[in-house]
Design a protein around this nucleic acid. Structure first.
Lengths: 316, 316
DNA sequence: CTGTTAGCGCGTTCAG
DNA sequence: CTGAACGCGCTAACAG
């Protein structure tokens, strides 16, 4: 049988309250009893029972990662799994676990049920919109953090901006942007950054909407080259899209980066493996997810932007 | 304040014991009190407190996914994050969370500490070897399941075998295999399947070891074509490797699949996006992870193999 | 600084 | 079939 706090207290010759104070580090304790308790705990190989601690403190035991999406199979989205795994790794030392839950577009009911579940220590929201944040159940207020769009997010504006600037610095002038879907909040910042840069440089603004997929990237690249044949660079707001662009250009016999430079965004593992290797910018999903989890667990911090670093390879 | 079992019992005019029996479904209860309790619970919007339940039942609140690897940053491995996310999704309805923990090659101490943690409901092991399973702490015995190599796994032998058979059926005769690292258990089954098929068909066995990476795939393909220039098909045991093979062949001006057919394994998202699109076989990581989690939580099942389905695209 | 006393919310004997 | 009482293991007010 595993040793419990009572055993430690008895062996140390103090009360359980004192033992608890010493071992949890909360509350005062004389050096003498502190020492005795620590020794007793070590001798007995005492390990606290996290479940009992959580119950007693009125805290939950898990972080719920709630991802709002119209697709049912959110597990196929690499960002979802990367973020979930990162949180599961960060939460481990605290004895917490991570649960993943998909939210439908209208998630009012689901959020209520999550709020009612007292095993939920914190909630990390993604794919949300403003309405959702505003209608957040009161009981979730102090323990919810959001990823993206107003919450913890990557500075995609600055990231894409730095790539566009690089394109300009290397002589590109007719730069097209394949953006995200207009109705997705994350599409705004890159589009804005690109537009501002082009305008203030007196260069033409050429934008085609995408949807972050490779298939759409292929089609979008064809549209770009048909509509503006003199385009000498294509900036995509996701690596998946950029892969489609590369394929499309290769099929059309357009050399990259000689005739047309290409950039992506995210720095997925395969970006380094394309031919030629894709120039892109980092997307620290893991850092963001962990920051959001910490914020949800009580850190006051909100709305922080994580920097995106350009990774220049062969395509630009 | 949220309603608790006491409130439900009082409103239903029964004792907490009866209320508990009715709501948990364990133990007898008369139709009358059953009805009263159910109604009272509904009226009050009663939601049980999972943490209290777990403490009382002496169960843990989380599933620990323990991944043994020499690399420190296991989060970068897509299989790790996919498996973790799948378990986090499957565990959600049960009020359980998932924690991810890296294990060093000699994980004796870590396993002890995991076993001592009473918040751990179950352990899913991956990257293990036999010695590790044998030295498993006694307290972990009934609640541990393993992914791969003797545990729940994909039938990679049959998967690679079906691809090799397809290559033969389409006229390929000089088929080379780029395998996994010899010291990894998961490399054995595909190698064995390939070797048996080639031998019994009276065809030459051509094997070059790989390490599941794209970089190594590039190098391995060069080795294959230099050593056996008449090779007309290359089967790789991972899609990442196959991508390297495709790049290497493209760089050498060898048309795929005309001169050399190529197959991978895993069916990662980008396999559909290569040019030409990669023929491969599925690796149901999510299904496997969930099955392992269920097994660890108490299902008796062990050592089940999940089928791998060939996905024939353009490279073979 | 310390020990006593209540809880945290629920499961589960064990007599009725 | 039911209810009173205890146990799960620990934290936190409250006097001392």
């Amino acid at each position: 049988m595993t040793a419990k706090l009572t055993d430690v207290a008895r062996r140390a010759g103090v009360s359980i309250a004192t033992a608890s104070r010493v071992l949890s580090g909360r509350g005062p304790a004389s050096p003498a009893s502190r020492d005795a308790v620590r020794r007793a705990a070590a001798d007995l190989g005492y390990v606290p029972h996290p479940v009992a601690q959580h119950l007693s403190r009125g805290e939950g035991t898990r972080i719920v990662f709630a991802f709002r999406d119209r697709r049912t199979d959110i597990l196929r989205d690499p960002f979802v799994s990367r973020a979930a795994a990162a949180m599961a790794s960060a939460a481990e030392p605290d004895g917490l676990g991570v649960s993943l839950r998909r939210l439908p577009l209208d998630a009012a009911g689901e959020l209520e049920s999550i709020a009612a579940d007292r095993s939920v220590a914190a909630v990390v929201l993604a794919g949300h919109d403003r309405a959702m944040l505003d209608r957040l159940p009161a009981r979730l207020r102090g323990r919810t953090a959001a990823i993206g769009a107003g919450g913890v997010d990557v500075d995609s504006g600055a990231g894409v901006g730095s790539l566009v600037r690089h394109l300009m610095a290397t002589g590109r002038r007719r730069i097209a942007l394949i953006g995200g879907p207009p109705w997705v909040a994350a599409s705004r910042a890159p589009l804005h950054a690109y537009t501002e840069l082009m305008r203030s440089a007196g260069l033409p603004v050429r934008v085609v909407p995408g949807d972050f997929t490779t298939v759409r990237g292929r089609a979008a690249a064809r549209i770009v080259m048909r509509r503006w044949p003199d385009t000498d660079a294509i900036a995509a707001v996701s690596d998946a899209t950029a892969l489609g662009v590369l394929q499309s250009l290769a099929a059309a016999g357009i050399p990259v980066p000689d005739d047309v430079a290409v950039t992506g965004f995210d720095d997925i593992p395969l970006a380094a493996a394309t031919n030629p290797a894709l120039s892109t910018a980092t997307h620290p999903v893991e850092l963001i997810a962990v920051a959001a989890a910490r914020a949800a667990l009580g850190a006051p911090e909100r709305g922080r932007l994580f920097p995106s670093r350009p990774i220049l390879r062969a395509t630009a």
